[in-house]
Structures are given as structure tokens and as C-alpha cells.
Simulated assay, not measured.
Amino acid sequence: MIEFTPATASDLPKIVAIYNETIPTHQATADLQPQTVAEKQAWFAAHNNHFPAWMIQVDHKIVGWLTLSAYSDRSAYDQTAEISLYLDVAARGHHVGSAALAFVDREAPKHDLTTVLARIFGHNQASRNLFTKFGYDHWGHLPAIAILPEGEADLEVYGKHFKSRA
């Protein structure tokens, strides 16, 4: 059973550990060095009822996390969030990502969010396919914007509009 529970400050070490697992793969983040809990505290503190963070559990074991973060600090973007979804290596390929995006479909309007954006490396075909499967459209292409150890990487922007509950 896949469950989503609100993330708390005590979850931050697990969030950072899962995030750091992805850094060496160069598939999901442009960070090149592991992050510390202290470095992520301000980022985590920016999440609230409007821009929430959740832990993902399978059979009561934490396997990932999901956030809807502020896209911009400019007020015209208050209803726009950027999604981050990170899964433990063992949870990948087991439909947890699909469950997470289905969860976001239900939750985004409850948090008065009308737009969710995803930034995905062009070479991360699995994530691109997942977001496309859940109705995210390809909204942008930023060629050779990231410099990774293996070379330049494109960034693709996917987006989806939701109706606010208001």
C-alpha cells in the first residue's frame, strides 16, 4: 500500500539521503555534490500548506518524497508550483511514481494550485514518459543548459493546468 503523509522537519535527514542517492546518476538533479541537512533546511522550511511536502511510504516504509514548491517569489505565480519527486532506488519501477502523480492530480487543487511545472533532463526518458502519461505537456526546451561530468544536458519543461477548488 502506497501512502503519502505530510513531511515534518524530522523527515529532513531521510529526504536528503534519498536526494543524495540521485546525484551521482546525473538523471534527476543538477546538483553535483551531496547536500547536507543544514543546506536543505531553508528549502524545507519554505514548504507550507500552500506549497506542501509529503513523504511516500510503501507498507509503512519511507521510499521517497514529493514536494510542490513555489515556482517564483513573484505574486502572479502564487498558484504555480514546481514538482519534485524523488524515490529510493529500490522503489523505482514499482509504480510509486505513477501513484505520486495521481496523488498530485487530487492534491494540487486542494492547495489552490492551478499550474504544476516539472523540470526534467532531456536524457531522463523514464521521467519524461511518466509525466506525459499523466497529462503533462511539453512546454519548453532549454538546450545544453546543464554542464554535467559527462557533458552538456538539455532541460525539458513539462506543465499541467488544474482547476482550483475556488
Rank of each mutant, 00 (worst) to 15 (best):
A9Q: 13
S10I: 06
D11P: 04
K14A: 12
K14F: 00
K14M: 12
V16D: 09
A17M: 12
Y19L: 12
T22E: 13
I23W: 12
T25C: 04
T25V: 07
A30P: 06
D31V: 08
Q33Y: 00
P34G: 10
T36S: 15
T36R: 10
T36E: 12
V37D: 15
V37M: 10
A38D: 15
E39P: 11
K40E: 09
Q41I: 03
F44A: 14
F51G: 05
P52T: 06
V58E: 13
D59P: 01
H60N: 14
G64Y: 02
Y71Q: 13
D73L: 10
A76E: 13
A76G: 08
Y77A: 05
A81E: 02
A81L: 02
E82G: 00
E82T: 08
L85W: 08
Y86R: 12
D88T: 11
D88R: 14
R92L: 00
H95L: 06
H95G: 02
V96I: 12
G97H: 00
A100Q: 07
A100F: 04
D105L: 02
T114D: 09
T114A: 09
V116T: 05
A118F: 00
A118I: 06
R119G: 11
H123F: 00
S127H: 01
S127I: 07
S127K: 06
N129W: 01
N129E: 02
L130H: 03
L130N: 03
L130W: 02
F134Y: 15
Y136E: 05
D137H: 07
D137S: 14
H141W: 09
L142P: 05
A146F: 07
L148F: 09
P149I: 11
A153L: 11
D154N: 09
L155R: 11
E156P: 00
K160S: 05
R165E: 12
A166I: 05
A166Y: 04
